[in-house]
Amino acid sequence: MAQSINDTQEELIAEFDLFEDWADKYEYLIDLGKKLPAMSEEWKTEENVIKGCQSRVWLHAEREGELVHFLADSEAVIVKGLISMLIRVLSGHTASEILAADLYFIDRIGMSQHLAQTRSNGLLAMVKQMKNYALAFSAQQ
């Protein structure tokens, strides 16, 4: 069984604790973004675009039995880094686990500024869309 959502959050917090200044943290985040596997072009549809982002962000979800898997991509690498962490934390869990998740790691790794409404990079929109997918899947069950 996959580790819990909170275990993964703790893992990310520990990783970011290795870096002292913001620049090192962002270099790590950029690195995560670059390593996010490319999304197949077939999923980069208008339907999968998350609205309200300054860069285009695509998010697709699939179900495998009880579990929800996310695929995502963005034109901006920092956004990709943020998505990559969200996928690592939420992907492979059940819809009800995803809906119940409290994503406290974002604040703890010093990225809470990306949750502000004024930041049109859409971290908030991404989290909402991931939970929307989970809600839709749980309604189908």
Partner: peptide, 21 residues
Amino acid sequence: GIHPQDLGVLLDKFGVAIRTG
């Protein structure tokens, strides 16, 4: 090779306010 938004985010961390988009 760089999206304007990425530059805007990093410049803000350096205390520089620019506009991107």
